[in-house]
Design a protein around this nucleic acid. Structure first.
Lengths: 240, 240
DNA sequence: GCCGATTTGTCCGTATGTATC
DNA sequence: CGATACATACGGACAAATCGG
């Protein structure tokens, strides 16, 4: 919960954009005007604006001003920019989430697993298979590897609720960055066993490595989604 | 081509990380040390570090230092963070690119197109269908809509080379931000006509809206990729 | 456990450059 | 040309987290 000044300005402007207090294509107040409005320095205003730019909410134009280029996103969207747990995104979309633990094991990384996950060979890991359902429909099959040394005391019981709640709440670990790769792969027998694939023979697959604030990788996950409930959004900016 | 000081520091550090001058999990020099090394202010160093953080290259740790968390990416990767033309990414991956223009038309956006593309109804557009091949294999089918008012004088000839080169080079338009949505969809008859889908019945689909530096949307594109040659990478950071 | 040195995080004020109008 | 607006850069101040003695 940051109480930083730039973050307050960021959130305030963000809300004003989302609620169309500033409309699409409208200019925001100039930096100078925002300085007066929020009683702060120019750097602080600029930091808030920089974050809105990275979010794709606004576009600064040299010598002209800052334009609102936000258009509301579609509601079915599953994943957006940040790091979100399954539970969080379900909540955001007002859906009922349910998680079933299919497998729970303690393993040691061999050469093959080490190569795949980014953990060093010989590392002690938890391996889980979990099935996520939304509004009663099983849609996502997850293969998780957690670093046992850091994610101590994980149980099937915890895994059936929110592991992220446990990591951040109980263990007090701060989740920092996550590197994700998105691919499309053939369905497997395991996929078909648990998920009604209709006539799709592919899954949307997100593999991710997640790091805590000490730069230690504590998770590798492969998340397999049924195509028709999968959507991933992103904003890119071009480097000059 | 920015000649800004922070950008020089950013590139220099980035290269040192990629070439493992700094190794994985190693600490970078402290901000103070970097100030001396680059003869600049702390803010300038911090800006460079902030960009590396956003790239997922390093992780700053309060009171401790900045850690290198970069691991080399896989080579087959098609799209990374920024905005890249087909030609640019092919070049980066040392592949031979070829583009065939299947359709070239001038149209006016009706209600349906307006809703899909984000252009206003009645807008004059170019509509193209293009097939991209890598090393002789047709892999990507693109449906492009360009704002005629801005992307003046587009021809099939230009479209068979690089439209982005034309936009940035000839027209002097600066490409600023691009909003992308990634989904997985069934193959269409058009897909199958031009692309050897093997046993896949899905395509990886990127739809994107692209804006110039005046905040004007000049492009809507749906880019359909054969699954086995598609990979999308991303780094996310968790907001505290 | 305390204290001081180091390191990153936030914020401020100012100066100068560049693009737009 | 001058006024306005964003872009870069500098230097300084204090807070917060970490670490070693």
């Amino acid at each position: 919960m940051p109480k930083a000044k730039y973050d307050h300005i960021y959130r305030d402007l963000k809300e004003k954009i989302e609620t169309e207090y500033y409309t699409y294509q409208e200019m925001l107040p100039s930096e100078h005007a925002l300085i007066l409005e929020y009683d702060c320095s120019r750097n602080t205003v600029r930091r808030a604006l920089a974050e809105l730019t990275a979010d794709g909410y606004v576009q600064p134009m040299h010598g002209k001003g800052v334009r609102n280029i936000f258009q509301p996103i579609e509601q079915t969207s599953f994943t957006v920019g940040g790091i979100e747990s399954f539970k969080e995104s379900a909540l955001r979309n007002h859906q009922k989430a349910f998680t079933k633990v299919l497998q729970f094991a303690e393993i040691t990384a061999d050469a093959k697993i080490a190569k795949k996950t980014g953990f060093r060979e010989g590392t002690e890991l938890y391996y889980l298979q979990r099935l996520h359902s939304l509004d009663g429909k099983p849609l996502i099959l997850n293969h998780n590897y957690f670093l046992k040394e850091l994610i101590k005391g994980l149980t099937p019981e915890i895994a059936s609720h929110s592991i992220y709640d446990y990591i951040e709440g109980e263990l007090g670990i701060t989740i920092a960055t996550s590197k994700r790769t998105l691919t499309v792969e053939h369905v497997t027998q395991v996929d078909e066993k648990y998920i009604d694939m209709k006539d799709y023979n592919c899954m949307a697959v997100i593999t991710s490595q997640t790091f805590d604030d000490n730069g230690v990788q504590f998770e590798f996950t492969q998340s397999r989604h049924r195509p028709d409930y999968f959507r991933f959004q992103d904003v890119a900016t071009r480097r000059k």
